[in-house]
């Protein structure tokens, strides 16, 4: 098996160019017209941003709906969306718009926010670094993940799912490359309900499920 090369990453965040969002209807219109990178940023990259620290929901739209639009119904509906369940970002966008349209049909007044509480659409460039570290064998994977930075966990286990042609996390892709003997590791990784973990918890969970196989494979 070719050794697994551990990488690390960081985000460089920029404004998307869309105007600030001040109410639910504008949120709907901006989500309809924003770039896929902006959509990805607010659903997926948010976990790497400094502001992320165990909020109730895992995407920025749900958090904003709860904290500033003060629409808990909408926050709950948006909060359960798992962006990695969708085959493409356009599917994710369509489902998100469906939720927003449904809510716009229910409310008697369009929820709005005070100045200073607007939603800003952002996007990011992911900068990827070589760490120089390698994993030689699947049995060493759990130990290596235990020492990984949040950036490494994000890049290999989450961001990789957006990379063609495999659209899979890097660990699984590497293990599959090693043949059927790695099947228990692949199944262990697939058992994680990963989207609802913060990165620190995700690292713990990865170590837990892979560490449980030690001696068994």
């Amino acid at each position: 098996m070719t050794p697994f090369e551990i990488k690390d990453c960081a985000l460089l965040v920029r404004m998307s160019g869309l105007p600030p969002t001040t109410n639910l209807r504008e949120l709907r219109d901006r989500i309809a017209s924003c770039t896929e990178n902006a959509l990805f940023h607010h659903f997926c990259e948010t976990t790497l941003r400094p502001t992320f620290d165990n909020p109730d929901y895992r995407n920025d739209f749900a958090v904003w709906a709860k904290l500033y639009l003060e629409d808990r119904v909408l926050a709950e509906r948006l909060g359960i969306l798992d962006p990695y369940e969708f085959r493409s970002l356009s599917e994710l966008r369509a489902v998100t718009l469906e939720i927003l349209d449904e809510r716009l049909g229910e409310v008697t007044m369009i929820p709005w926010v005070r100045p200073g509480d607007e939603f800003f659409f952002l996007e990011a460039t992911t900068v990827v670094f070589a760490t120089g570290e390698r994993i030689a064998h699947p049995s060493a994977l759990a130990g290596a993940i235990r020492r990984m930075t949040n950036g490494s966990v994000y890049f290999h286990f989450l961001e990789a799912r957006r990379r063609p042609p495999l659209w899979k996390d890097d660990f699984t892709a590497w293990l599959l490359d090693g043949g059927e003997v790695n099947e228990p590791y692949v199944r262990a990784l697939a058992s994680i309900d990963f989207y609802f973990h913060g990165l620190a918890h995700l690292r713990d969970e990865l170590v837990h499920v892979l560490g449980g196989l030690e001696g068994a494979v």
Binding site: A10, L12, N37, T125, T126, V127, V128
Partner: peptide
């Protein structure tokens, strides 16, 4: 990083070091 991004100027989503 942003100096690198501005110099490259191609708006890539990922920059590999």
């Amino acid at each position: 990083t942003l100096i690198l991004a501005v110099l490259q100027g191609d708006g890539e989503r990922i920059i590999y070091m």
